[in-house]
Amino acid sequence: MTSPTRRTFLQTGAASLAGAALVGAGTSPSTTAAETSGKDDGKPGGEKGPAPFIDTNVHLGHWPARHLPLGKPADLTAKLREHGVTQAWAGTFEGLLHKDLAAANYRLKKACEVHGAGLLVPVGAINPTLPAWKEDLKRCREDFDFSMIRLYPGYHGYAVEQPLFLETLKQAREVELTVQVVVRLEDVRTQSPLLRAPDLDVTPLPGLLKKVPGIRLQLLNALRTVKNPLLLQRLAAMGVHFEIAMLEGAAGLENLLNGLGIKNVCFGSHAPFFYFESALLKLKESLLTEEQLTFLRDGNARNFFIPPQP
């Protein structure tokens, strides 16, 4: 049986392929062209409409330390649409410091519906250090019909090797929630002294993932700090996905794909914290094949939601 999670995200991908607006910001499961055909290899098909383009890393809400020019959802969605983004996975900055995450996630859901129907896919914030955090997880899945959660260990004060992290992954897998883990949001050198959040050390992650087979996990803002090619390759081999918002270096994307292959790297902008164009121009800075571009812009993000075959 196809899970709602899978259907939801394949549906939004297919809807964007057809250029159609979604009802309820990706919360209404429906059968997709890919499912109907039984094939979805992420390669371009014969669909008409705008070329699919998924931004896997945006946020709504207010950044606590700075006004962001595109901080209003309407301004952000206008920017995304201007550049042809057909779907954006949106977390909430409220998830960093708020303790009433059920309310924050509800506001996120509503904001996505009001400002980004057909474009914004809400990603619920979970803080496993809070009492009754499993209730938040359950609400994300059952009440809000989210398909994905975002973790902020640096801001919530836990590390990958702590049992809490493993437990969160297990719980997420149990209810078929895909997990995005934020490695950093801001350069540690420029953080407010009252809002210092360390980068997440993902070195122990490969060992941990063996304990949660089948988990769908993406690291956000990882590529500025996680540079060990062997670690990246190992994580990719275990199905971990990445995105390019914090990837640096001249022709950095070209270099990354040469070492990592194409299947695990998605587009992500970290807008509105970063200028959206910074990520977009990386697709031009590197020499990429049409196939690579298709995987980056859309295919890998969609394939990310297909559960591994037993």
């Binding site: 950095g252 959206f276 164009e277 910074s278 990386k282």
Partner: peptide, 11 residues
């Protein structure tokens, strides 16, 4: 560059 990306900075 080359430590930084031309693209990220041009953005």
């Amino acid at each position: 560059a080359s430590g930084r990306s031309f693209a990220s900075q041009l953005g």
